[in-house]
Design a binder for these strands. Structure first.
Length: 267
DNA sequence: CACGCCTCCTGTGCGC
DNA sequence: TGCGCACAGGAGGCGT
C-alpha cells in the first residue's frame, strides 16, 4: 500500500536519522523468497549513507564508493528503529548504536545495492516516469504520452511509466477527481490535463497528511497517516459518491480492486 | 513491442 | 467455533 505519499513521509522521517550514518553491519533473512528480492545487500556494510532520496516509490540512498542503496517497501514493508519481531527481514547496525529494522510480513519488499544510477536490474526504476510533484511532470508531455497508449488508463498509471509513484489508492482517487473511467483507453488532451492536475493535488494533499493508512502502512514511529478519512473513492464501494450521491461501483481491473463512480466517470 | 495475465507472500475478515 | 477461501496490491516475468 505504500505509494508516493507514504514513501515520501518515510523518507522525511529517515533522512535526519540516516544521513552521515555509517552502516557497521547488516543482516538479512536467508529465506529463499527474501534472497530473491534482495540484491547485494551485504555491500552496504562499512558504507556511509550520504542522504535519503526518493524516486517514485523507491527510497534511494547514495553511499560512498559510488554505490546506491535502493529500498522498496512492496505491500507491507515498514522501517523501525531498535525493533524486533518475527517479520523483520533485514537489520542495519548504525554507528550511533541504533539498529534500523526492515519489517515486511509478506516479503514483497526489495532492497538492493547498485552502482549509482545503474538500474538495469530494477526495470521499474529504469523506466520510471517523471516525479509528479516536480516540474519534470509536464502537463503537455503527459497528454502526449497518454495519447500514444491504448491500455486502459488505470493499469497504465500503475505501470509507473507515465508518472512515478501512483498506486492503487491514488489511481482511484485521481481518476475520480478527474472524472475519468478507469477502463478508458482514450484520454484526450483536455482530460489528460485534468488528470495531471488531479494526480498532483491528490498526492500533494496526501503528503501533507503523511499518507493513507488503510491496513498496513505505519510511519517510522509506528503512527498512522491521516489521509484515510479524506478518500473519495478508494475503499468506498456502495457508499454515495461525494459529488453526485450515486453509489460507487467496484470492479476488478488488472487483478486489482477498482472503485469509481458510474455516473461521474463515464467512458 | 505493448499489453495482459499470472505469480510471489501472509494476515485478515468474511460466510457457512 | 472452526474452517476454507477471497482479498489486499507492490513489481517482475512471461506469453501473445
Amino acid at each position: 500500500m505504500p505509494e508516493l505519499p507514504e514513501v515520501e513521509s518515510l523518507r522525511r522521517q529517515l533522512e535526519p536519522e540516516l544521513t552521515s550514518r555509517r552502516v557497521e553491519d547488516v543482516w538479512f533473512d536467508p529465506h529463499p523468497n527474501v534472497l530473491r528480492q534482495f540484491r547485494d545487500v551485504g555491500l552496504v556494510a562499512g558504507r556511509t549513507i550520504g542522504g535519503v532520496g526518493r524516486k517514485g516509490k523507491f527510497i534511494v540512498c547514495p553511499l560512498d564508493e559510488g554505490l546506491e542503496l535502493i529500498m522498496h517497501l512492496g505491500m507491507t514493508g515498514a522501517f523501525r528503529f531498535d525493533f524486533d519481531d518475527p517479520w523483520v527481514r533485514a537489520r542495519m547496525w548504525l554507528d550511533d548504536g541504533r539498529v534500523l529494522a526492515f519489517r515486511d510480513p509478506r516479503r514483497f519488499g526489495r532492497i538492493a545495492v547498485v552502482p549509482a544510477g545503474e538500474y538495469g536490474a530494477i526495470p521499474t526504476l529504469a523506466l520510471l516516469g517523471p516525479e509528479p510533484l516536480s516540474d519534470e511532470f509536464d502537463p503537455n508531455e503527459f497528454a502526449s504520452v497518454l495519447r500514444k497508449t491504448r491500455a486502459p488508463i488505470k493499469p497504465y498509471l500503475l505501470s509507473q511509466r507515465p508518472v512515478a509513484g501512483v498506486g492503487n489508492i491514488y489511481a482511484d482517487e485521481a481518476l475520480w477527481r478527474a472524472r475519468i473511467h478507469p477502463l478508458s483507453r482514450r484520454v484526450g488532451p483536455r482530460r489528460a490535463l485534468d488528470l495531471h492536475g488531479a494526480i498532483r493535488s491528490v498526492l500533494a494533499e496526501a503528503v501533507e497528511r503523511e499518507g493513507t493508512t488503510f491496513r498496513d502502512y505505519q510511519m517510522v514511529n509506528g503512527e498512522s497517516g491521516r489521509n484515510a478519512p479524506f478518500l473519495d473513492a478508494y475503499g468506498r464501494v456502495d457508499r454515495p459518491c461525494p459529488r453526485c450521491g450515486t453509489p460507487l461501483k467496484k470492479i476488478v481491473l488488472g487483478g486489482r480492486g477498482t472503485t469509481y463512480c458510474p455516473r461521474c466517470q463515464r467512458h
